[in-house]
């Protein structure tokens, strides 16, 4: 009886020791072979993951080359500088008076813009020649009043892809936000 209790006690003590500070060497030896096998699988998995990402990128490039060749490509981006005087809610985009894109922002997307991110708003095709872009931003000012900020921009589409960034910038002179169009030079 006493001997049996001692056995249980020793089992328990062993457990207690194991939980806290027992030597790991035995477990390490036993699991080293399994760890090696795991490591091989892990490496192989990582390799496949990397290749899937690479394939994704190449498919994306192929799709862009096929659907939006440089001679006709137009891309429009949105960025926010600080966003103190204007809380972005949505945007509508027109090219040559035709609606081409619209976007309703979530809190997280708005924060992402305020953190310095640039959003790809629209990618499409345009004929060569003169065009007009109109962007209407809807949001809230400091006092939570609904406000709109709009801009128009004339541009000429030539052989190269055209990339336009719509920047919402705070103007400290009049405490208002202003939309500035910036053309990226390729």
């Amino acid at each position: 009886m006493h001997k049996e209790f001692s056995l249980m006690h020793s089992v328990l003590v062993l457990f207690l020791l194991a939980v806290s500070f027992a030597d790991d060497s035995y477990a390490q030896q036993e699991s080293s072979a399994a760890d090696n096998a795991n490591s091989e699988i892990s490496n192989e998995l990582e390799e496949i993951k990397q290749q899937v990402l690479q394939l994704n990128r190449e498919l994306f490039i192929l799709e862009e080359d096929l659907l939006f060749p440089a001679s006709t490509q137009i891309a429009v981006f949105v960025s926010v500088d600080i966003g103190k005087f204007f809380t972005l809610d949505s945007v509508e985009l027109k090219i040559d008076d035709q609606d081409v894109a619209g976007f309703l922002y979530t809190e997280r997307q708005r924060k992402a813009l305020e953190e310095g991110g640039i959003q790809g708003l629209y990618q499409g095709n345009l004929k060569k020649g003169s065009h007009q872009l109109t962007a209407i931003f809807i949001g809230y000012d400091n006092e939570q009043r609904s406000v709109k900020r709009a801009t128009t921009y004339q541009f000429v589409k030539e052989d190269d892809a055209i990339m336009l960034e719509l920047k919402i910038e705070d103007q400290t002179q009049d405490y208002r936000a202003k939309v500035i169009v910036e053309e990226w030079l390729l």
Partner: peptide, 11 residues
């Protein structure tokens, strides 16, 4: 690079 940041900040 900032375009990539936009995706990152959205998780």
């Amino acid at each position: 690079y900032r375009k990539a940041l936009f995706y990152y900040f959205q998780g």
